[in-house]
Design a protein around this nucleic acid. Structure first.
Lengths: 126, 126
DNA sequence: CTACTGTATATACTATCTATATACAGTATA
DNA sequence: TATACTGTATATAGATAGTATATACAGTAG
């Protein structure tokens, strides 16, 4: 399991791990029942501490994306695809809402913001 | 000058002050040449420390939005309306780009993201 | 000259994040 | 049963970011 985390990213490491694992699950790259590396293994892989990896796992467990058993390990929880997609859409909606609100607060009209967004989509990658 | 900052907002206070003053300038509520409260005044108004308000002013000065003279005070810099609007659009583009990228990383297609965005715009306030 | 302004520096505290270590309880396997 | 792993818990401690308070200096305006 290869997570894209970086010490240069200003975001806390545990948050990066959460984001990455959540993405792998929501995109289907990790399936229900898949085992995750132990918190010790992951800490070693990412050259970070066990507290950090455990915190990430705990948060994802709280979200219902992971299940954990002492002595056994941590696994992707049973999450059907439609629920996963709905979760992804919800997260995206939150991100877009926040961006939209900030843009509005800068005095831009919805029309202007919409035009900017479309411009980004066109100009965006293929 | 009334800034909307809150200790409950997880964002650092200096960042909130920066955002608010930047907004006032970009929306035209503050005009070129307008004086800002002294760092001591603002610190008192917002019940925060001088270091915090000074940090906000310094950053905005670095951005070119404020000019400062020792012994005199701090003022809104000469910024014409079109440049201000362009700056606002640029900031908005940055916010939207980041939200879009995160949404893509969740496995959502541009079509889906666009639909979500439109839904937010419709459902958004009036 | 006085009262303000920004600039600089020092000390110190709080909160968050993270590293390292130790120990316990549970599980799986040989 | 012993071993090697797993997660859980706790302790100490360091680094960083943000912030509070205080003091002092230099500059400005009336």
């Amino acid at each position: 399991m290869l997570l894209k985390v970086s010490g240069e990213n200003p975001e806390p490491m545990y948050q990066q791990i959460i984001n990455e694992i959540r993405r792998l699950i929501l995109t289907g790259e990790l399936s229900p029942g898949d085992p995750l590396p132990s918190i010790r293994e992951l800490a070693q892989q990412l050259t970070t501490s066990v507290i950090t990896t455990r915190r990430a796992y705990l948060e994802l467990e709280r979200e219902g994306l992971l299940t954990t058993r002492q002595g056994v390990g941590t696994f992707v929880a049973r999450v059907d695809r439609e629920t996963a997609r709905a979760a992804a859409r919800k997260i995206a909606a939150g991100l877009l809402t926040r961006a939209l609100e900030e843009a509005r607060r800068l005095g831009l009209t919805d029309g202007e913001i919409s035009a900017i967004f479309d411009g980004i989509l066109q100009g965006g990658n293929g």
